[in-house]
């Protein structure tokens, strides 16, 4: 890590008032924020050069009863990836859309709603189905969803009759 980079990180920390965590990969940092503070953090980060939103994703921490939203931003000037994380309540997952900061997030939000059931206020289209058609079960990427059981109930498997031909060896004397 160069000196200028650490200075830059310090500025970020000071402006945002949060701790910028290191990650296992180089040029990559984490920021943990409350879900109410996400938007101002993102707006700030976009302002300082994180113009690209690479990914918006979600993790189901079922044991803690939380969903974790991760917004991965990228700064092309120095190649830094910034992962902004926030926790949501698993029972009533609700979040405000970030499409006014990163317009590209609109389909990611739709996808997260489809796969996790997170609601995005302010995104008019998030409730439409995207990948799945006539889905009739809980959002499939939740940890308590069992795809094997679903598949077994819906899509019959080919039955392989395990018949082995035994060769009769005649022993002759």
């Amino acid at each position: 890590m160069t000196n200028s980079m650490s200075n830059w990180i310090e500025t970020l920390e000071k402006d945002l008032g949060v701790e910028v965590l290191d990650s296992p990969a180089k040029l990559q940092y984490f920021i943990d924020v409350e879900h109410t503070n996400v938007h101002q953090t993102l707006a700030y980060l976009r302002h300082v050069g994180f113009t690209q939103m690479s990914l918006l994703s979600c993790i189901d921490w079922i044991e803690q009863g939380k969903f974790q939203l991760i917004c991965i931003l990228m700064n092309w000037e120095n190649g830094v990836h910034m992962l902004v994380r926030t926790m949501l309540d698993r029972e009533n997952p609700e979040f405000t859309t970030i499409t006014d900061i990163y317009p590209g997030a609109v389909y990611y939000e739709r996808e997260i709603h489809e796969f996790f059931g997170v609601h995005f206020r302010g995104n008019p289209t998030y409730q439409k189905p995207l990948f799945l058609e006539r889905w009739d079960d809980m959002p499939p990427l939740r940890k308590d969803f069992d795809p094997q059981a679903y598949s077994d109930s819906k899509f019959p498997r080919r039955e392989h009759p395990h018949v082995f031909k035994t060769k009769v060896v005649e022993v002759t004397e």
Partner: peptide
Amino acid sequence: MVYTAVESSRGEYGYFIVSDGKEQPYRIA
């Protein structure tokens, strides 16, 4: 958790990998 990306023919192609220390990944996006 870590995000890795490479340059594919169409642009940035990345995996976001979360591990909980077990034999299986906890989540991959």
